[in-house]
């Protein structure tokens, strides 16, 4: 079976700073992959290279067998229109929600469907309501985002991405800006998506989520994948001291059993 996402020899530099130093990553269809690593390890940049929010400096990215861009003189070239088309096939959810504040919840979820995919308003509305129901927020459809809690905003953002019928969903630290008590509802929505077979790549600091939901975790360190594998292996018996230190830092204070 073709991989949903295939990344080969990916490099990304910002000016002189090389953030990604040769990444190879496969995401199988229906798989949930969690990217871990300390800040500055390149995990967010890697995620953003998958839907070309950042253009890789070199390397190849394929989505369900389609190589993105065309090769010219040993370099990949990307046309803006192709990238816009690609992004309709990949959903992305951000740390700060980025809902459109001047549009209602329903309009937020309809916007891309109507403007980008060219769906009729009736079809888009029906689809939007279905996705809002999926994240448990259909009764918030007429509200403006300002009236929602952080957790609700993030679930609307998830519905907005899902309404485009993406082949892959990307989650960029989507619970980091939430009050602790609101983290659960968002993680629950993500878990439900994973169980429904959605292919997803998540950058998160929620080790528990990685352990229980991910099929694969990748630990990034200084722009490279240091360890990857099943969460039960990588998180329980890490091979490198770097990963051990990282995990210890995340579990310094635990409630007694």
């Amino acid at each position: 079976m073709t991989n949903a996402v295939e990344i080969r020899e990916l490099h990304k530099s910002f000016g002189d700073l090389e953030v990604l130093k040769g990444i190879d990553l496969d995401v199988a269809q229906g798989e949930a992959v969690v990217l871990l690593g300390s800040s500055g390890s390149g995990k967010s940049t890697l995620l953003r290279c998958i839907n070309f929010m950042e253009e890789p400096t070199s390397g190849r990215v394929s989505l369900n067998g389609d190589l993105i861009g065309t090769e010219q003189g040993g370099r990949m070239r990307y046309r803006e229109s192709d990238l816009c088309q690609l992004r309709t096939r990949i959903g992305m959810v951000f740390q700060h929600f980025n809902l459109f504040p001047h549009k209602t919840v329903l309009e937020n979820v309809m916007e891309g469907q109507v403007i980008v995919l060219g769906r009729s308003k009736a079809e888009a509305k029906e689809k939007a309501m279905a996705q809002l129901a999926r994240v448990g927020l259909e009764e918030k459809a007429p509200e403006y985002p300002a009236r929602l809690s952080g957790g609700q905003k993030q679930r609307v953002a998830i519905a907005r991405a899902l309404a485009m019928d993406p082949e892959v969903m990307l989650f960029d630290e989507v619970t980091s800006a939430l009050d602790p008590e609101l983290v659960g509802e968002v993680l629950k929505t993500m878990r439900q998506l994973a169980e429904e077979g959605m292919t997803m790549v998540c950058v998160t600091h929620e080790i528990g989520f990685a352990y229980h939901v991910a099929n694969k975790v990748c630990f990034l360190h200084q722009g490279q994948i240091l360890e990857q594998g099943a969460p039960q292996v990588v998180l329980k018996t890490p091979e490198t001291s770097r990963v051990r230190e990282f995990l210890e830092g995340h579990s310094l204070f635990k409630l007694p059993e």
Partner: peptide, 29 residues
């Protein structure tokens, strides 16, 4: 906020559509 451009871009909008549909209506206010 830069995030508004990003959100529009992430659902496949062109820069022109983002400006017209997302950025300008907020900026004008």
């Amino acid at each position: 906020d830069k995030g508004q451009w990003e959100a529009a871009k992430a659902i496949g909008m062109t820069r022109k559509a983002s400006l017209r549909r997302i950025i300008l209506p907020q900026a004008v206010k």
